[in-house]
Write a protein that binds this DNA or RNA. Structure first.
Lengths: 131, 131
DNA sequence: TAACTGTACTAAATATAATAATACAGTTAA
DNA sequence: TTAACTGTATTATTATATTTAGTACAGTTA
């Protein structure tokens, strides 16, 4: 499914969270699609099931997946209405990140290109609203 | 100077690195300005000097400050030419971050506003080049 | 010289991450 | 109903990372 860097200073469960997020965001894992069970994935990645569980719990907390005892864990649909706080934080973090990027040498053009690149692949929701 | 969250899961030295970076990026700490000594800052923040040292060493590695034995630690000027790898990584991370932001509910308009807001405050370097 | 600076090092304490083993409850299909 | 799956919880143990503590040394400055 993907690979982990066991020697990274970044904890395994965090790597898992990040990678699974990416798969969900990029629609590789579709809405309501079932994730591998904690035991299966643990075996595939040669790590402990508890570590998978920790990652799944975090993803559930952040609203990316939902789990049903006895059935499995599934990709949930993101509901923007629930996430005012998350959105606020994401904005703040993005500002910092962009400022840092400019500082280390990215040009405004670089930024515009990145934005174009991403928006090009997105359904144009310029008119989208959050109340 | 700033505050730390000693109860955060994020290590203190990482918090220090992030906060000092922000101060440098936002020009609160000017070029060649002297940072507080490791002992002074440690006392101010009620933490161990070694922790400050670790943060300073990291900032030096990343090119944000330079240290001179016997004199002190100072804000360095960022030289984009040295940072091709950093720039590449920053771009990648920015892409992921933006994709995630859109996923959790930010609109393209939100992004454009953020960009405008930051570019507004920046010296317009749209024409800047890296060879 | 005295009082600063950064830097290095070892040791100990603390916190976090990861593993291991087990157990229990809900689901599903044979 | 049973067997084999699911998620979830718990406890204990090990490993790793972080932080503190104490000390030392070399360069700078007034």
């Amino acid at each position: 499914m993907f690979e982990l860097d066991l020697r990274s200073r970044k904890p395994i469960y965090e790597q898992l969270v990040d990678k699974l997020k990416q798969l969900i965001i990029n629609d590789v894992l579709k809405q309501d699609e079932q994730l591998p069970s904690v035991r299966t994935l643990a075996q595939q990645l040669s790590i402990n099931p508890n570590t998978i569980q920790k990652a799944y719990r975090e993803l559930e907390t952040q609203g990316y997946i939902y789990s049903v005892k006895g059935k499995g864990s599934f990709v949930s649909q993101m509901v923007a209405e629930n996430n005012e706080q998350q959105i606020k934080e994401a904005k703040e973090q993005l500002k910092k990140q962009i400022a840092e990027a400019l500082f280390i040498g990215l040009t405004v053009n670089d930024l515009k290109e990145i934005l174009e690149e991403i928006i090009g692949g997105e359904p144009s929701d310029t008119s989208a609203k959050r109340e």
